[in-house]
Design a protein around this nucleic acid. Sequence first.
DNA 1: TTGTATGCGTTATCAG
DNA 2: CTGATAACGCATACAA
Lengths: 359, 359
Amino acid sequence: MVSRAIARAAVLMNNNSGKKSHGKPTIATVAQRAGVAVSTVSRFLNGHYVSKEARARLTEVIEELGYVRSWTARNLSLGLRGCVGVVVDSSQDLWFTQLLAGIEEELSTRDTSLMLASLELSGRYDPRIVQQWVRERRVDGVILVKSQRRDRPLIHECTEAKLPTVMVAPDEAVAHVHVVRCDNRAAGATVAHHLANLGHKRIAFAGGPEHSVDTRQRLNGLREGLEERGVRLDPKRVSFCASYEADAGCQFASEILKAPLDFTALVTGNDALALGFMRIAQQHGIRIPERVSVAGFDDIPEGALLWPGLTTIAQPTREMGRAACQKLFEAIAEPGEQQVLVYPVDLVVRESTARPVKP
Amino acid sequence: MVSRAIARAAVLMNNNSGKKSHGKPTIATVAQRAGVAVSTVSRFLNGHYVSKEARARLTEVIEELGYVRSWTARNLSLGLRGCVGVVVDSSQDLWFTQLLAGIEEELSTRDTSLMLASLELSGRYDPRIVQQWVRERRVDGVILVKSQRRDRPLIHECTEAKLPTVMVAPDEAVAHVHVVRCDNRAAGATVAHHLANLGHKRIAFAGGPEHSVDTRQRLNGLREGLEERGVRLDPKRVSFCASYEADAGCQFASEILKAPLDFTALVTGNDALALGFMRIAQQHGIRIPERVSVAGFDDIPEGALLWPGLTTIAQPTREMGRAACQKLFEAIAEPGEQQVLVYPVDLVVRESTARPVKP
DNA sequence: TTGTATGCGTTATCAG
DNA sequence: CTGATAACGCATACAA
């Protein structure tokens, strides 16, 4: 007992003068300098009850010492990791990089780092890394981006482990997790109105995979939007691609261009499909938008880079990234109700759509 | 012997039974179950000296308990953060996202997370977040991607703070840090040979900023490569853009297209510039590659998406990301010599280059 | 409101 | 080679 008290005294001595550790001031240094207990400092740092005088003294001392708290220690004490996981099919996805910017922004305000996981890093689907995260609880929460049907087991594991989870733009109906997405139906309707206003009557739709919720909602929006303008979307002109990749758009184009085009405007399930279509169409000498107008969804940056620029629907992607992060932090702080946040979309008109030469 | 071990185990059991842990097994749980001290377990985990028997017993117990070590605690003890910083102008940069994939890959093998910082997140240059990182030592090291002249103060702060630093594809001459980059001179020479082989004699170069090291090296490589084929690069056909963005490429195109083209092939400082040029050229009805061949550097994914596809020089970007990460970990483990890793490049031929119609 | 004492899970030191 | 124990820096019941 006595020896222990002495040891403690020695420690305090050390903290006082020599700063034996990394040289950086700790909560103890601050406490001592301010003449209060460490717990008071801790309470102050976390915004709990502290007397006016102590508060003033502490702000002063902290400033003076240039003290910054150790989040590692805090996390250890709290049983946290100070790190959230972000999961996406491929970090190459351009829409995702915009989302990432929003996440990054929000993360930088807290002291939380992030771990990235691409489900398809090396060409084939492999969710094991993420499964490790949840099993070993290497992250305090996860943001699942654009998850699909094949991710169901993964999602299940997250909820099962009671790991705070936020899904962004899920292409699946999900429950028991926060969701941040855009208004796909409105997006479809907006495109519809744009094309109808230009005078298009014969419009085709080339979606992503048929079971994709995004595709279905966008298609519904398109159909309804056209009907509102008295234009009918002929089911014969509706088709689906195998994926959302540009390759699938190329394939669709190669297929459809075997016969003469019987439509004046094409709406695709997303921008990548549109770009793929445009690439092949141009290769075939088909002029856009003179011969056919093209519109997509997502507003990926490439759309603005090529000629003609792609008319598309923009989501407030960065804002959605920030929101996802905020929701995740809320969920980590106190697991509560699951919310669904729906964001409005915007039409971006570029050169790929124009009045039809002959309706 | 045996009975003593058992007795000790019993005591430890008692000691431990009162603990209110999160239910997860800790190093102590493992130690008592295996009948050894925590320090032995720790040594085992870190690959230090442990007797054969203890080693065997521990692997067994750890497997049995499903024990996973707490990296938070480890970092606290080691004075680390378990997190590296990755800094780039804009996380939207497509070349960067490929690099990120490599970094991600390497990070996932260790238990280290990452913090992202875009120097130009909100439109204007703002290195304050990164400065905070180094001052408060919120990261164990940083990877600086494509840093430029304006980043000099930042780099200085990093080295000053003795923060392990790796630079990837720096566009500046730097010392005292690890560097991972590609062979820009060879890249230029490779393009030169490709174009010369196609029969081009009148070749133009539109670089990035004039002081850019990348641009200068690529230009030198191009010039030398052409000379090797007996083609002279006319200085009148060499110009520089204000930036490496597509916009600058557009601007260059608008400018140069005011007069008739006096060259049959254009090499740009990077792919983005090439895309910008192509967009405007096509808008002006200039056919690529019939009227002018175009080649860039970097092999960003968009280059393959449009028509005609862009001929370019590919870097082993992902591998470079992994290497940067590895070097950083080495530097964190033991600060030592600064190395420069130079990676070879590859020519990717697409549709934007062809034989000139009339040399 | 403040202070005391202890826990969080590892690693490092140093004596056996 | 192994074991006991002091850091690491912070949070928080509990007592005052």
